[in-house]
Design a protein around this nucleic acid. Structure first.
Lengths: 159, 159
DNA sequence: CTCTTGGGTTCTTTTTTGGAACTAACTCTA
DNA sequence: TAGAGTTAGTTCCAAAAAAGAACCCAAGAG
């Protein structure tokens, strides 16, 4: 399988991975959510090579996750900002961070806390059903083929 | 930065990525959640090379995300199953799939539907605050340094 | 025996990274 | 006004990792 084929697959996860499915891209996005915007700042914080950083940022801009905004003319300087599409990745980032907090933290605990502006408390994300509002865990969900499903890719026996 | 350094960083996202931060691993996990358990079945469904598949499965087992369970003796045959730690990735998978459904779907719509067993309806995941129960979006959260934070890694200005 | 199945490992060729230097278009300092 | 600095890249080459295909092994089955 070529990586280019990924976004052709009838699977939303595969298509998501075609955009953000590598470590550098996710780390770039993490820093975006922390407020980093400039090429140099990404480079210094991540320790990524300029070469790779340029490629990752370009891909994210092409996919509409980030957008370049000029912050000065003469000389033209641009910074990278999350679009609405990019901001919409927040639940996924939160879920990944939360998993890391629970399963990969060292004895000092979570490195970063998320404070909910609404209630002012340190929160962790909880997934609920959009229809009934109840908490949803891995065993509470059944998978079904939807409209965009290709027949040849069979669902295996029920999980 | 070496990838081995990733899980040393004071960042739960980086540590999570050290385990599941590549495309094949995420696709393997997707299939795990769909009920796939055997080496051959992963190979056929993913089109991954046996070489890489073996490596990914081994790493997931080492990190306790999957476990090998014998399903027959003589000859010994083992299958791979999600552990509790693995099942706990469900919110993250759901969030990634949901983003793909919203932003990367073609005209036919979502390929896979999630049915909430509790209420029987097709659901999509909603993130709520563990403390007050309100829906949480990207702009509703402020980030603060926690106990496991290393001072040298500065938070940039507030997002 | 020989064939098939499940679960890998080895080998060779492509791709992708890492690292460092170079470019462009200005501005700031002496 | 010559030289140094800033920001955002690009180019080049060696080193590391992944793709693809073939090969291995043990335990039945025919």
């Amino acid at each position: 399988m070529r990586w280019e084929e990924l976004d052709q697959q009838p699977c939303s996860l595969a298509r998501t991975l075609a955009v953000i499915g590598d470590k550098w891209t996710l780390l770039v996005l993490r820093d975006c959510f922390l407020g980093v915007r400039r090429f140099d700042e990404f480079e210094q914080r991540l320790g990524i090579t300029r070469h790779l950083l340029a490629g990752r940022l370009k891909k994210l801009v092409e996919h509409g996750v980030l957008t370049k905004v000029a912050y000065q003319q003469r000389p033209l300087r641009e910074e990278y900002r999350l679009t609405e599409k990019g901001l919409d990745l927040h639940p996924a980032m939160l879920a990944l961070v939360s998993w890391g907090d629970r399963h990969m933290a060292d004895e000092r605990g979570a490195p970063v806390l998320h404070v909910h502006k609404g209630c002012g408390k340190v929160m962790h994300p909880v997934i609920v059903c959009s229809e009934c509002g109840e908490t949803v865990g891995a065993r509470d969900v059944r998978v079904e083929a939807g409209a965009g499903w290709a027949e040849e890719a069979q669902l295996p026996r029920q999980a």
